[in-house]
Lab assay of single mutants.
Amino acid sequence: TQTTHELTIPNNLIGCIIGRQGANINEIRQMSGAQIKIANPVEGSSGRQVTITGSAASISLAQYLINARLSSE
């Protein structure tokens, strides 16, 4: 079954999640098997909405990979 998880990434950290020309986010997508959508910046908001869709296992793996990127910054 597909589930969806949403999280907010601070604007100053979204770059390390996306990577150069989307390299990091594509790697996270491939490794986790989850669909990951990053919302466009919202004016006045300090973060970007990230939506992860997939199986429970792929979502938790995607979250783990995202958190690993954030903590390495």
Score class of each variant (00 low, 15 high):
Thr1Leu: 14
Pro10Lys: 07
Ile18Asp: 04
Leu70Val: 10
Gly19Asp: 05
His5Cys: 14
Ile17Met: 03
Ser72Trp: 04
Gln30Thr: 14
Asn40Pro: 12
Ser72His: 10
Thr1Arg: 09
Leu7Met: 14
Pro41Ala: 13
Gly44Thr: 04
Gly19Pro: 04
Gln35Asn: 14
Ile25His: 15
Gln2Leu: 08
Ser45Pro: 04
Met31Cys: 13
Ala56Cys: 09
Arg48Cys: 08
Arg29Lys: 07
Thr51Phe: 10
Ser72Lys: 10
Gly47Cys: 09
His5Met: 15
Leu70Trp: 03
Ala34Ile: 01
Arg29Trp: 00
Gln49Pro: 05
Thr4Gly: 06
Tyr64Ser: 15
Glu6Asn: 15
Asn67His: 08
Gly47Asn: 13
Ser32Cys: 07
Gln21Lys: 14
Gln49His: 10
Gly44Val: 05
Ser46Tyr: 08
Ser58Cys: 06
Gln2Gly: 13
Asn26Arg: 13
Asn11Trp: 04
Ile25Trp: 02
Arg29Thr: 09
Val42Arg: 11
Tyr64Glu: 15
Ile36Cys: 06
Gly44Leu: 04
Ile36Gln: 01
Gly44Ile: 02
Thr51Asn: 04
Ala34Lys: 00
Arg69Glu: 04
Ile59Glu: 02
Thr1Cys: 06
Ala68Gly: 08
Gly19Val: 00
Asn11Thr: 07
Asn40Ala: 11
Glu43Asp: 08
Leu13Tyr: 10
Ser46Asn: 14
Gln35Trp: 06
Ile38Leu: 09
Ser45Leu: 12
Cys16Thr: 15
Pro41Asp: 09
Ser55Phe: 03
Ile38Val: 09
Ala39Thr: 06
Ala23Lys: 14
Lys37Gln: 14
Asn40Ser: 12
Ser55Asp: 08
Gly15Gln: 07
Ile18Thr: 06
Pro10Met: 01
Ile38Gln: 01
Gly19Asn: 02
Ile18Leu: 05
Ile36Gly: 01
Glu27Cys: 07
Pro41Gln: 13
Ile52Gln: 00
Pro10Glu: 06
Leu61His: 15
Glu27Ala: 07
Asn67Cys: 07
Gly44Ser: 06
Ala56Thr: 13
Ser45Cys: 12
Gln49Arg: 13
Leu7Arg: 05
Glu73Thr: 11
Cys16Trp: 09
Ala68Gln: 15
Asn67Leu: 07
Asn67Gln: 05
Ser72Glu: 15
Ser58Tyr: 00
Ala56Tyr: 06
Ala56Lys: 13
Gly33Lys: 05
Ile66Thr: 03
Ile14Ala: 06
Gln30Trp: 05
Ile52Ala: 02
Gly47His: 08
Arg69Cys: 05
